[in-house]
Amino acid sequence: MDFTLTEEQTLLRESARRYFADATQKASHRGDRGKAWADIVQMGWLSVVIPTELGGFGGSIIDGCLLARELGRGHIGVPFAESAILGAKTFANDPRMLEQIAQGQVKPAYALQDDAEPLTFQRRDGGYILLGAKPFVRFASDTNMLIVKAFDEVKNVPAVFGLSKDSPALKLDSYPTLDGIGATSLAFESHVIGDDSCLAIGEAAHKLIDGLELAMCLAFSAEAVGLMEFLVDATVNILRCAPSLGSH
């Protein structure tokens, strides 16, 4: 298997590396991420895996992961992977949502992890009721849509739901994390959500979840590699500034 980057991929990686290196020097606080997000939108990186016929860059998951790695390397906490990679896959057949993702207007957070007690759904006239809670959802405080996985009451049939963060069915509790990004716990109230909140159910949900979990693994791993590179560079710089530390 050939892992050599194409010329376009190399240019994409280098432009992202230069941008994030510069942004890291200028911004060190949470409030500065808004500028980074606006720049990412302007440069078109949120459309990196959206097909060209739908107005995107037409890249592959590799292109998205190259950007995710450089974002981790720059240590700038914005929901790039959730929007550009997972969002594009979730709404692959919805041009309107893809356009809003590319413009940075739709910023989804994902709760797909398998906890001891998974979320469940019950069918109701005109919609569904979701039951259960999730203790950790990354970036949920900075996003405006939640994508969750749930099962029927006997836990045989999966479904994927998309809800506005302002939905009355949701109770959110945000809290800080050591990396400064923050997270949110969520619990569902007994409110009926509309049929249009169900993005996939049954076999279609199985396929969507499998694709999302694979893309999530790749994107988050790429971001983690970049973050490790950031930590190595930071450690080397500290040792250079304080040579005595390296002698012990």
Results as ranks from 00 to 15, higher is better:
Glu153Gln: 15
Gly44His: 06
Ser247Phe: 06
Leu11Phe: 04
His191Val: 15
Gln25Thr: 12
Cys198Lys: 06
Leu214Arg: 09
Phe3Ile: 06
Glu82Cys: 12
Lys149His: 08
Gln42Cys: 03
Pro95Met: 06
Lys149Asp: 01
Ser167Asn: 11
Ser141Pro: 12
Glu229Asn: 05
Ser197Ile: 01
Gly34Val: 06
Glu117Leu: 13
Glu8Gln: 12
Pro51Val: 04
Gly194Asp: 04
Asp125Ile: 02
Val106Ser: 02
Ala109Arg: 06
Ala169Ile: 09
Ala183Ser: 15
Arg123Ser: 09
Gly34His: 10
Ser164Trp: 02
Asp152Met: 08
Asp22Arg: 10
Leu86Met: 13
Leu199Gln: 02
Leu67Ile: 07
Lys134Val: 11
Gly132His: 05
Ile76Asp: 14
Asp115Phe: 13
Ile62Gly: 11
Val232Tyr: 09
Ala150Pro: 07
Pro95Thr: 04
Gly162Val: 05
Thr52Gln: 11
Leu239Trp: 12
Ile201Leu: 13
Ala234Phe: 09
Ser83Val: 13
Val157His: 01
Ala204Met: 12
Val232Met: 14
Pro168Phe: 01
Val41Leu: 05
Val192Leu: 09
Glu229Tyr: 03
Ala92Pro: 07
Val49His: 00
Leu66Thr: 04
Val148Gln: 15
Ser47Asp: 09
Thr24Glu: 03
Leu186Met: 14
Gly194His: 00
Ala88Asn: 09
Glu223Asp: 04
Thr184Glu: 02
Gly194Glu: 03
Lys107Phe: 02
Ser28Leu: 11
Ala159Gly: 12
Ser190Asn: 14
Leu86Val: 07
Ala102Ile: 06
Gln9Ile: 08
Gly34Ala: 08
Gln103Phe: 00
Val236Ser: 14
Leu178His: 08
Phe161Asn: 03
Leu112Pro: 14
Met216Ile: 00
Ser185Ile: 14
Asn237Ala: 10
Gly126Tyr: 08
Lys207Ser: 06
Pro243Gln: 08
Val225Ile: 12
Ala16Pro: 03
Leu12Met: 04
Ala16Arg: 09
Ile40Arg: 08
Phe188Gln: 06
Ser15Thr: 12
Arg240Glu: 07
Asp115Lys: 13
Gln9Val: 11
Arg123Asp: 09
Trp37Gly: 13
Glu14Ile: 00
Ser60His: 08
His206Val: 12
Tyr128His: 13
Gln105Cys: 00
Leu227Ile: 01
Met145Glu: 13
Cys217Thr: 05
Gly180Leu: 01
Glu189His: 08
Ala102His: 06
Ile76Met: 13
Arg33Phe: 07
Ala68Ile: 13
Asp125Glu: 05
Val192Phe: 08
Val232Asp: 14
Glu7Asp: 11
Thr90Val: 15
Gly246Arg: 10
Lys35His: 11
Asp115His: 13
Asp195Val: 00
Ala224Asp: 07
Asp196Gly: 04
Ala222Met: 04
Glu99Ser: 05
Gly58Thr: 04
Phe220His: 11
His75Gln: 10
Leu245Asn: 13
Val106His: 01
Gln25Met: 13
Thr24Ile: 00
Ile50Trp: 02
Lys155Ser: 09
Ala242Asn: 13
Asn237Gln: 12
Leu54Pro: 00
Glu229Ser: 03
Ile129Met: 08
Leu112His: 09
Leu178Ala: 14
Thr10Val: 07
Asp142Phe: 02
Phe91Gly: 10
Phe151Met: 05
Ala88Met: 07
Phe91Leu: 11
Glu203Phe: 01
